[in-house]
Amino acid sequence: MIVIEDLHKSYGNQQILCGCSATVNLGEVVVVCGPSGSGKSTLIKCINGLVPFERGAITVDGVSVSSPKTDLPALRSRIGMVFQSFELYPHMTALQNVSLAQIHVLKRSRAEADARSEKILARVGLGDKRDSRPSQLSGGQQQRVSIARALAMDPQAMLFDEPTSALDPEMINEVLEVMQELALEGMTMMVVTHEMGFAQRVADRVLFMDRGQIVEDTPTAQFFTAPASERAKQFLTKVLTH
């Protein structure tokens, strides 16, 4: 589904990603973890072309992300993305947030899009919030609306960029639950997160990144019991003892 090969990315002199390769198969849930500044967010933003890269290749469902011939908006419309800071449109209601791209990208009629949005908002437990503005919603609710916004496009895969990092502790679970349900339904997911409990419960594989490299790419059970690299061991002791 998603194939990343020898990816290199730098900002000015600073090398962010140096030679990352990974694959996410259809229906797989892959968690990306690692210390801050290890390049996790940059990696995930390269996948839908939000961040351009210098070297290497990414293909999504066989389509190259960096090829100038690729219709990038069309490709992006098939991959949902959820951001750390929600990024809901503050001048629109929850329903309008979810309907916008359906109308302007998928060319659904407003009625059709709104009907679909209502269904999806109900599915993430926010059926009664359709007319609320983002500023009237809690962080957890906002993040669920933003998941709904991505799901409304009927994506083939979902990317999550630290979806719970900006949330108060008591709201983290309501978002993780929605994500877990998605995973159970067979959605292909790539999740950058520090939530190791979620990774243990839901992920098929864990990618551990450090200083721009994917240091480990192991099945979840093995990652938590017997990580191969020293750096992953250190990271896990730090994260799990807290």
Partner: peptide, 15 residues
């Protein structure tokens, strides 16, 4: 307008 707003729109496939 926050930078992320544009990323959010682009990510849904808007031009």
């Amino acid at each position: 307008v926050r930078n992320g707003q544009s990323d959010a729109g682009l990510a849904t496939g808007l031009r």
